[in-house]
Nucleic acid binder design. Structure first.
Length: 306
DNA sequence: AACACGCACAACCGCAATGCG
DNA sequence: ACGCATTGCGGTTGTGCGTGT
């Protein structure tokens, strides 16, 4: 105590991150791996505090983050888990590996809380921390609302993500009929730049003043006459940053491995190992995997109520 | 066209937990 | 065991954007 927060230091920038800053940060992490955040601002010259760098990475730039619309299944999971765990967003996020706790928290506050309120006008959503019957009712209805042909590929694994270190998690991957929505850092930045170029008058200036790294992105993104400013393909970006192919840095630390095939094999192995070496599933996992897992499927088949 | 309003989400803040010498 | 530094987490705020008037 008494120590000023790092972000209060003079010269520390606040506010939205620019693509330039993102690229610097990603490049640095690409080289050194995530962690040792204290050294990041010093070594990169970023006028951000270490905390801000870490947050930017974990909530936005980290590979494997899925952004945008929550699927009905994810929604149902969040409602379910919130009812069970309360506002333990990090814990909830560990069950939805593609989502950040911040994202889930935002989604809860802006969408789901209202939905629940609508359904239970007299019930304070904050009270939904226990698995009372009304919550279950809502959860059931919520799931029933989500009729879908998707099925859960439920498998257990151990996340090694530093963010959720050593916690045992469930991977609830929809057995994809649609392309995977895992996103790499390059995709995240691509998307960011794309939107930024489209909307920001600063983009022009940005182009003029860019560094060599930025020139690469500009070349990809805004060739003359390309009104859409579309980044030709993510592959191009991938190849530049070689992001998802890095084998020499600490990506093992991330739970967001984009190599699904490998991941699947690992899961089978881990599940087997786990059943031999580890204590039984936690209550929640049992609940989700066991009888209620079945209920989830049943709920999917219920007629639409809302 | 201009303004007000509400929404969504990125980012920040402060405290707690953890790691380390 | 202690104190400091670092990281993690949950709550809150700020800002940009879309929509309605």
């Amino acid at each position: 105590m008494g120590r000023p927060p790092c972000c209060d230091k003079v010269g520390i920038k606040k506010g939205p991150w620019t693509p330039e800053e993102d690229i610097i940060l990603v490049s640095y992490i690409q080289e050194h791996g995530p962690g040792n955040w204290r050294s990041v601002p010093t070594n990169t010259g970023l006028l951000r505090c270490s905390k801000s760098c870490r947050l930017r990475w974990t909530n936005y730039l980290r590979p494997g983050i899925k952004r945008g619309n929550f699927t009905p299944h994810e929604e149902g999971m969040i409602i379910h888990l919130q009812a069970l765990l309360g506002n333990k967003w990090a814990a909830i996020a560990s069950y939805l590996p593609q989502r950040t706790d911040n994202d889930i928290k935002n989604y809860w506050n802006t969408h789901l809380k209202k939905k629940i309120k609508k359904f239970q006008p007299g019930l304070d959503p904050k009270m939904a921390s226990s698995s009372d019957s009304s919550t279950y009712q809502f959860v059931s209805k919520s799931f029933s609302d989500r009729k879908s042909s998707n099925t859960f590929d439920i498998s257990t694994t151990k996340t090694t993500d530093h963010h959720h270190a050593s916690s045992t998690t469930l991977n609830l991957n929809q057995s994809c009929s649609t392309p995977t929505s895992y996103a790499s850092s390059t995709e995240n930045i691509s998307r960011l730049l794309e939107g930024w170029m489209r909307s920001s008058p600063k983009a022009e200036k940005f182009h003029q003043n860019n560094s060599s790294t930025l020139e690469i992105f500009s070349t990809i993104g805004t060739s003359k006459g390309n009104t859409a400013h579309h980044f030709g393909s993510n592959e191009e970006l991938e190849s530049i940053l070689s992001f998802d192919n890095m084998s020499n840095i600490a990506w093992e630390k991330s739970s967001c491995d984009s190599d699904h095939q490998q991941q699947k094999e690992n899961l089978v192995h881990e599940r087997k190992e786990r059943s031999e070496n580890e204590p039984p599933l936690s209550f929640i996992e049992n609940w989700l995997l066991g009888e209620n897992g079945g209920q989830v499927e049943e709920m999917m088949e219920l007629p639409q109520i809302f």
